[in-house]
Design a protein around this nucleic acid. Structure first.
Lengths: 256, 256
DNA sequence: GTCGCAGTTTTGATCGTACCAAACTGGCTG
DNA sequence: CAGCCAGTTTGGTACGATCAAAACTGCGAC
């Protein structure tokens, strides 16, 4: 069993003993033999069951853990967790995190978000249902009410954008949104914020909403692009430690 | 996001000894002390260096590996690999793979691709440069030439779509495409293929290309949606083991 | 009966050692 | 210099032991 195509992320070239264990445990989990939320058998039991040493069992468990199939808190029994898109994208965020601090990967990531949301508002303008419109309206109202309170504004800002991700009725979209938000949340405390900036952002949201109401995809897309491109300026500074944007005063980028 | 947004794949609650090693090695890698492409020190050396047992060192190494920071082929020294969006999305694919076989996560994933590519062709129709158009033209020609050879057709099909992902000039986009392709590649051997089907797909590509040429985003988007929605029918069957689509004969979904 | 607490058992985390096989190294030979 | 071979390095796996925290048990108090 030397030459094999590893299923692992970092394309492995061979097959270790643990891989077989991983595979068998995988099967048990997806087959429902090990239901979600239940604890894995003790390591020593697995060891007897698979006829492998604990070394291998542990390796298999950590592998499963890193693949998101089990949750492995330090001193507790591993918990079976069927992965959703959330956990998958969460792992992605963890990895992407490394290439953020250095390259312009940050910009690329933010641009990808702009690109996606442009498509989302276009979709919304064309296919939003009554319930979606209502949800947007409510999110917008909450957003307006929260202008004086930057923390609450941030939350309602996130919520407003979240509605956009709900509209395609694809569970991946909200998961992507949560991944973006989780990423930005790390840097939020470094972003400048102020009621004035909140008001600007609220107005942007309002413009987007109205374009959606009027079923005007182009206007919606343009408004969103403008909104997020402006937000980028406030995100960028959090990644450029040396730069002190003196002219900006104390403002905020509430750009979820 | 119910209670907590764990940064890790499987939100850890505590801290094991290996975590510290992981962190320190991470630092060495991102700081450039361990340059890209170089091999990690031997396990025994790390063991002495960090004052930990090999068990812990190995656990740290597998953790790094699963996070994409090092490449860990079975009997070789681990290689430092600063992660790109490729490795990140590759890991994502590994995790997502689990929720494919069972739920309609497959459909959701494919739909997300349609959604993204719709935006991509729209972008192409609006902002493609001369070089992009030329690349599309060449990819299309190669695609046409490969119609009789299904394997080669598949490759050129992938290449054609790849050009679309290049146009936004965002490194994330091609990475996403490669992730999609890697995912579909697993099931390609089960897809029905035939020169007739190839011809149909080629015609779809041609229609998309012409719409881009004419700078008609709506037409391009519509053509692409039609193309991929049709392709979905051929992808779907590979996920429904019991169904034997008798009427379809031997055809192929070359839907990269 | 239920609740709380101390003692016991289970079990994950870590360590050390050992052995094997594959990869690597360096020198020897033609 | 190419190619082969033995020695060394190094990763993969195994076994056993120890420790501390979690889980469990049983007893007594209210």
């Amino acid at each position: 069993m030397t030459g094999e195509a590893g299923t692992d992320a970092a394309a492995a070239g061979g097959r270790r003993a643990a891989d077989a264990i991983v595979e068998r445990l995988e099967l048990r989990i997806v087959s429902g033999e090990l239901p979600d939320r239940t604890a894995l058998p003790p390591e020593r039991a697995l060891m007897a069951e698979f006829g492998a040493s604990r070394t291998v069992i542990r390796e298999a468990i950590t592998a499963l853990s890193s693949r998101g199939l089990i949750e492995n808190r330090p001193r507790y029994r591993p918990i079976v967790r069927k992965p959703g898109f959330d956990s998958a994208l969460g792992a992605l965020g963890g990895i992407v995190g490394h290439l953020l601090g250095e390259t312009e990967g940050v910009k690329a990531l933010f641009d990808s978000r702009i690109f996606l949301e442009r498509a989302l508002v276009r979709e919304a303008a064309m296919h939003a249902r009554r319930a979606d419109i209502q949800a947007l309206r409510e999110a917008l109202a909450a957003n307006e009410a929260a202008i004086p309170d930057s923390a609450r504004f941030y939350a309602t800002d996130v919520a407003f954008h979240a509605v956009l991700y709900e509209i395609p009725r694809n569970p991946i979209m909200p998961a992507i949104h949560r991944a973006y938000v989780a990423w930005l949340a790390v840097h939020w405390h470094r972003m400048l914020r102020s009621p004035e900036r909140n008001r600007v952002n609220y107005q942007s949201h309002r413009t987007i909403f109205e374009a959606i109401l009027e079923r005007d995809p182009d206007a919606a897309e343009a408004a969103l692009a403008s909104h997020l491109n402006a937000a980028w300026e406030y995100v960028r500074v959090t990644f450029e430690p040396a730069v002190e944007p003196m002219g900006v005063g104390q403002m905020e980028a509430g750009q979820p």
